Simulated assay, not measured.
Amino acid sequence: MGRALRNIFVAGCVLLWLIPLYLLIVNALTPAGGYTGTPDWAPRGFAILDNLHIAWSEAGIGQSFLVSLLYSVVCGAVAVLVAAMAAFAVVVLPVPRPAFWFWLIYSGTLFPLQMFLAPLFGLYADADLYDTRLGLMLVYVAWAAPFAFFLIRNQMTTMPPEITEAAMLDGASFRRIFWRIHVPLMSSGLGAAFIFQFAAVWNDLLLGITLSRSPEVQPVMAALMTLNSAYSSSGPPVILAGALIVSVPTLLVFLLFRGLFLRGVTAIAR
């Protein structure tokens, strides 16, 4: 009985996820001029290529797509590297009060992002970082690093301290221990942390609309919101086609690296 209820619950969750996806795809197929104003449950045409072309080229999703890809890959990788170094310092290095440093870094995930927007906007305006790619990349790294630090630190605490002690007896420096021992042993956890941060940066809207306005700087979620207002007269099919474009990278990352992600989550949750 319990297993049947669990299966029914899982099937319901799957349906709740698949129904909006089905409606998105079906209505993205509809010609923009033939949209009636109500969602279609069955395809009424095959204008997906035209809608994708309008969203990618004429509405500028393509440029923002490539910019967001840059932000997600570079900022996600840098955030994971910084988090791994911070976790190594807190767990392995003989720093005073490691618990204090852990909570100081982890506190970056505890406060709502909205409370930082006003001072961050003023700081960026004064420092000429507003509406620049460098400015967005800096804030994305700072925003993503605390949670990555939490994940990596959890895995690093499970590693036997005898490994570090043996390496130190052989004369290895802390830098060598980090790069030659800890990084290879934590490769799955680092990969899982990168996937989390890639998705977080890719899906960001709040920082994108607050700290940028130019099409060549705006991330893709901000461009999708602009598409919603600029092409509202064309009907939802063009906007839904843009949403399809935006959803592809995170879906591909999880599908291609699902094995690495599952191994990393398992290692972190031990």
Score class of each variant (00 low, 15 high):
251 L>W: 08
98 P>G: 02
17 W>C: 13
39 P>K: 11
79 A>V: 05
249 P>G: 00
215 P>T: 06
72 S>H: 08
137 M>K: 08
6 R>L: 14
142 A>V: 09
242 G>W: 03
224 L>H: 11
18 L>A: 12
250 T>S: 06
168 M>I: 08
45 G>S: 05
52 L>N: 08
35 Y>I: 01
205 L>I: 12
130 Y>K: 09
79 A>S: 14
7 N>L: 12
194 F>A: 00
246 V>H: 04
269 A>V: 03
185 L>F: 12
3 R>S: 08
178 F>W: 06
264 G>R: 04
124 Y>M: 11
79 A>C: 05
46 F>K: 10
231 Y>D: 01
47 A>M: 06
143 W>A: 04
248 V>T: 10
43 P>I: 10
236 P>M: 15
196 F>S: 02
139 V>Y: 10
7 N>S: 12
235 G>D: 01
86 A>C: 10
140 Y>V: 06
30 T>V: 13
264 G>M: 01
131 D>P: 01
209 I>D: 00
7 N>P: 04
256 L>D: 09
137 M>Y: 11
102 F>H: 08
116 F>E: 06
203 N>K: 10
75 C>Q: 06
117 L>G: 03
132 T>P: 00
201 V>Q: 03
19 I>R: 11
202 W>H: 01
150 F>R: 05
170 D>F: 03
186 M>P: 00
65 F>P: 00
193 A>C: 01
218 Q>N: 11
195 I>V: 08
159 M>G: 02
133 R>N: 07
25 I>H: 07
139 V>I: 15
131 D>F: 09
260 L>I: 13
120 L>V: 09
240 L>R: 14
74 V>T: 09
110 L>A: 13
259 G>I: 12
206 L>Q: 13
121 F>E: 07
198 F>C: 00
130 Y>A: 06
182 H>P: 03
246 V>G: 01
198 F>H: 04
157 T>G: 04
256 L>C: 15
160 P>V: 10
132 T>F: 10
14 V>R: 07
228 N>M: 14
138 L>P: 04
256 L>G: 14
19 I>W: 11
211 L>N: 03
138 L>T: 12
190 L>M: 08
162 E>D: 07
228 N>Y: 14
193 A>S: 03
142 A>L: 11
218 Q>I: 07
122 G>M: 14
261 F>P: 00
8 I>K: 08
214 S>C: 01
56 W>F: 13
49 L>T: 12
255 L>P: 06
206 L>A: 12
233 S>T: 14
172 A>P: 01
136 L>N: 04
96 P>A: 12
153 R>H: 13
208 G>L: 01
131 D>V: 03
175 R>V: 09
177 I>G: 00
16 L>Y: 15
166 A>S: 04
255 L>S: 15
232 S>A: 13
230 A>L: 13
90 V>S: 04
108 G>K: 03
10 V>G: 04
49 L>A: 15
173 S>P: 01
58 E>K: 12
152 I>N: 00
228 N>I: 08
62 G>I: 03
264 G>W: 06
253 V>L: 13
197 Q>L: 08
26 V>P: 02
218 Q>K: 14
187 S>R: 14
133 R>W: 07
72 S>M: 09
157 T>W: 10
117 L>P: 02
81 L>S: 09
201 V>R: 04
15 L>G: 15
133 R>Q: 12
6 R>C: 08
11 A>D: 03
